[in-house]
Design a protein around this nucleic acid. Sequence first.
DNA 1: GATATTGTACTAATACCTTTAGTACATTAT
DNA 2: ATAATGTACTAAAGGTATTAGTACAATATC
Lengths: 137, 137
Amino acid sequence: MGLWIQISSGSGKPIYVQVAEQISEAVAKGELASGDKLPAVRKLAAELVINPNTAARAYSRLEQAGLVTTKTGSGTYVSDPKLRRSDAADINILTERMDTIITRGLNLGLEGQDLIAMFKGRLAKFVNKKAERRKND
Amino acid sequence: MGLWIQISSGSGKPIYVQVAEQISEAVAKGELASGDKLPAVRKLAAELVINPNTAARAYSRLEQAGLVTTKTGSGTYVSDPKLRRSDAADINILTERMDTIITRGLNLGLEGQDLIAMFKGRLAKFVNKKAERRKND
DNA sequence: GATATTGTACTAATACCTTTAGTACATTAT
DNA sequence: ATAATGTACTAAAGGTATTAGTACAATATC
């Protein structure tokens, strides 16, 4: 597997956020499955030409989100999805973010139906990726 | 109309963002309609006990988003929704944010159907507010 | 026209965030 | 043992964000 992570300096987002987001998305799409090992922080840092500390910070963020498990001396692994249970605070943040999106969409002149259609459309891209992956297993 | 804007110091969000977001949401829900005049920056600043510059910055952000129109010497007014057309860049940002939410939701163990249900649920709160408002007009 | 009201522009200071760098340490794999 | 892994800590440098203060320009009101 080549390294699909792309760092964009003009993105406005910090490097460690970009790395964490792209890994998160890969997990959500099933491109990274439970148990998969992530590159070592020093290796990832070398390939992306960033500081090892920055790579470690991305992993730290992912671990805090419960998405990966780290074992010193062994590596960082995608954690079991069944152990990633959502608590009330997580759901609250999710709904707040939905409200923000809905606010923005409605104020752009979109209708509620448009927003639902968009949301389903984006969601399909995730589910399809997962389905493709299951086929190839 | 009393002042419904609530500033929370522990929110992590800058004051001007909080103000702009709450006004945006009010517009999306129809609590503020096209043509409505917003409080003057100094008046808003005095009521919220913030710096007038901070209030002005919130308005500036809303104007950049096309949500309000400002006339120096006159005031700041909610703009006509029909003039708030969405361009490609706006839609792109919207879909990116949807992807972020979907990523987070799926990684929390939620199913696609759960996310769609949540999204519709949140959207309903906006549409209902608009319907209530139309009734009272 | 005079005055008040409104939004804007500019500077400055403070604080925070990000990134990099360097070093050292504990744990695990080989 | 040796190598490889993640972690912890400090430090410095640079940039950005936020707020505050002051002065200015345009409009409304009389």
